[in-house]
């Protein structure tokens, strides 16, 4: 039996009737039309469907929509703020970290969660952090570069914010 849930998706509260069997990814793609989140497998391996649920990278194919009642969900469509791309998005483009782009949303979301906890990761840490995201095009080389570069961008922007505060 369908039940009403309220989920904050990319900053907007959405109330929807969902069947208990509906997966979060189905809510996002089919009900809310947020097709940037992709389904690449059916066994929770590929990570293409990764979104942030309450700030944590989560495979949206392995969580029921009803489980996210009251939660905050961020998808690739919500990464840019006020028309400005997230550093991870910018870095993926500038480092050529995507080819076909199908796995990219999931990888970027995983990277966003990871960099929130590790501001200056080593390459080995980056590779470990994306072990749950498969990419068949890039050989990961440029994805690692992009995440490293995004980390630097974020650190610099954080430092310049601090510097601005100090000046004031």
């Amino acid at each position: 039996m369908a039940q009403a849930i309220t989920v904050t998706v990319n900053g907007t509260k959405r109330t929807k009737d969902v069947e208990p069997s509906q997966l979060l990814v189905e809510l996002l793609r089919d009900t809310l039309g947020l097709t940037g989140t992709h389904v690449g497998c059916d066994t929770s391996q590929c990570g293409a469907c990764t979104v942030l649920v309450d700030g944590r990278a989560t495979k949206s194919c392995t969580i029921l929509a009803v489980q996210t009642d009251g939660a905050e969900v961020v998808t690739v469509e919500g990464l840019a703020k006020n028309g400005e791309l997230h550093p991870v998005q910018r870095a993926f483009a500038s480092e050529h970290a995507l080819q076909c782009g199908f796995c990219t949303p999931g990888l970027m979301i995983t990277a966003v969660d990871f960099l929130a906890r590790n501001a200056s990761p080593s390459d080995a840490e980056i590779r470990h952090a994306i072990e749950g995201n498969l990419c068949r095009c890039t050989g990961y080389h440029n994805i690692v570069n992009a995440i490293r570069s995004a980390a630097a961008m974020m650190t610099m922007s954080a430092q310049s914010k601090v510097a601005a505060e100090v000046k004031r």
Binding site: A57, T58, T110
Partner: peptide
């Protein structure tokens, strides 16, 4: 266990 996303949930 699994991968970071699996460990999240």
């Amino acid at each position: 266990v699994g991968d970071p996303q699996v460990r999240s949930r």
